[in-house]
Amino acid sequence: MSSLAPPNAVRQELGFYLRRPGLVLSGAVIVFVLLCAVAPELFTSQDPIAGVPAERLQGPSAAHLFGTDETGRDVFARVVHGAALSLRATVLSVLVSLIAGAALGLLAGSRGGWVDSLVMRVVDVLQSVPSILLSLALVTALGFGTTNVAIAVGVANLATFARLMRAEVLRVRTGVFVEAARAAGVRWTGVLARHILPNSLGPVLVLATLSFGTAVLEVSALSFLGYGATPPTPEWGSLVAGGRGFLATAWWMTTFPGLTVAAVVLATNRISRALDGERRLG
């Protein structure tokens, strides 16, 4: 016990979470969804692809938490199994924005001159077209499928990352320690990797967590429009789309998958807000 944090700090830590039940709940939602993505069989033993025709279009019950669809598939099982694909697409899209955006921002901020102007004009153009139209154009060119949707959403959102990264690099670049390293004869690439990158990456990583929610929404919107995985494979957006024809008779088919998306977005937004500043203020 003595090697751990002093009891006072532990109590403070506990108090921080106790005063924020919403944050704790958000954490629980995210942990649950991640577990669904990694090990869906933990939560449901029913088959997400093959249905039981005799049990078609049943309302929510103990046996079928979210009801069943028109071919007798368990909607809860489909939502749980859909988590893997939907979350993978979200993470991939955020990674694309983060890596490509940060690289462009780093290039622009560190090289300056015409490279900077060129990169920033490209970023301006990316921002002048609404991001969903941009990702639709990319999907048109790349073709359909979950991976292409993720890449399209990622590219459409990279402008903000490039801007922030550039601003951070410009701020760090003037630091005394950078000057000292340069004066000591460290090569430019060394300064970049050792000093500028680590010191400018923080806010960009926070932006990445903040953009998770938007990415979930955009990926599921494209999946809803039918540009994601091919039909029997469950994805959150396409699950909502699948229930459209049954709004009048089977409300559960659209309501629950949609609620899942909303819950995940709300939870990620709450957590990233906490990461963004609340934590530091305690």
Partner: peptide
Amino acid sequence: PLGNSLPPFWVGLMLIQVFSF
């Protein structure tokens, strides 16, 4: 923030559900 977190395609379908059906 709540309005920004709800998937618009789902909101549309819920509105149809409630107000039309």
